[in-house]
């Protein structure tokens, strides 16, 4: 097990590569999903404020789970 983490003496380079990849991808996923949710919330608020004058999005369109 220790040998596995040791990576033949290249532990720092190998593990920081994988850590960086994980961090970048995770940040990308998080930011994308968070931005999407924020826009959906904003749209809902604005539609509510506009009253019945604006067509509500269908369930499928906003992608919400019923």
């Amino acid at each position: 097990m220790a040998e596995f983490f040791h990576m033949g003496g290249y532990a720092f380079f190998v593990w920081s590569s994988y850590a960086a990849a994980f961090l970048v991808v995770a940040a990308l996923v998080w930011q994308s999903v968070a931005d999407y949710r924020r826009q959906v919330r904003l749209a809902e608020e604005l539609e509510k404020a506009a009253g019945g004058r604006v067509r509500r999005p269908s369930r499928a369109e906003s992608g919400e789970k019923p």
């Binding site: 996923v29 826009q39 604005l46 506009a50 906003s62």
Partner: peptide
């Protein structure tokens, strides 16, 4: 595959962003 999934999510966010923009303009 992850790239495509991310692309779709971001495109969905952009569609909603335009919707928000249009609603704001109408308001």
């Amino acid at each position: 595959l992850l790239f495509v999934a991310l692309l779709l999510v971001r495109m969905r966010a952009e569609v909603m962003r335009r919707r928000v923009r249009n609603l704001r303009l109408a308001q």
